[in-house]
């Protein structure tokens, strides 16, 4: 059946089965290929998107459960102050190695710093523990989150 979902501010329509994970609707039906597939089981975080600003694993979210919540993907996250700050910090710290996990990392990090401008190391561990980086860029992710949070704190 046809589902209408709001992605990055635009209403989009996808004619798929109810159990189709949001991940595949975004990637293969609606062409948001920045969202990545890593495990399909909620174990790696590569597919993280926001629903009304909250990070969710899109591979574990059937499209039928999105309803009228606003979907934000890596393609749209830079529209928010937090997303923009995180992307800038990612470049400043040269976080990216292969880059495959980074869409998911950035989505989780953005949700964290949007809610918490002074994240402690424990806050970062808790918010980011579901996102695997096989290249193990964790040291720079941690530093970049602190930079992004500090820039948001400064901006008020």
């Amino acid at each position: 059946m046809a589902y209408r979902i709001k992605v990055n501010g635009k209403v989009r329509e996808a004619d798929v089965e109810a159990d189709t994970p949001l991940l595949w609707v975004l990637r293969d039906t609606l062409d948001y290929r920045g969202v990545k597939f890593g495990c399909g089981a909620g174990l790696c975080g590569a597919c993280t998107v926001h629903l009304d600003g909250q990070p969710v694993r899109s591979c574990q979210t059937p499209v039928s459960r999105v309803k009228d919540r606003a979907v934000t993907t890596i393609e749209g996250v830079g529209e928010s102050a937090a997303g923009k700050a995180v992307q800038a910090a990612w470049l400043a710290h040269d976080v990216v190695q292969c880059g495959y996990c980074q869409a998911g990392q950035i989505m989780s990090a953005t949700a964290l710093v949007a809610a918490n401008h002074h994240p402690s190391d424990d806050d970062i561990d808790a918010a980011m523990g579901g996102n695997i980086c096989r290249c193990a860029t964790y040291i720079r992710i941690r530093a970049a989150i602190k930079t992004a949070a500090a820039s948001l704190a400064k901006a008020g």
Partner: peptide, 23 residues
């Protein structure tokens, strides 16, 4: 001198670069 990955700006904005992104 340190230079960040030249494709990193595309990575952090989710542009299609990977094998899995080919259509």
């Amino acid at each position: 001198q340190s230079h960040h990955g030249i494709d990193s700006p595309k990575v952090v904005t989710g542009q299609p670069l990977f094998g899995i992104d080919v259509v």
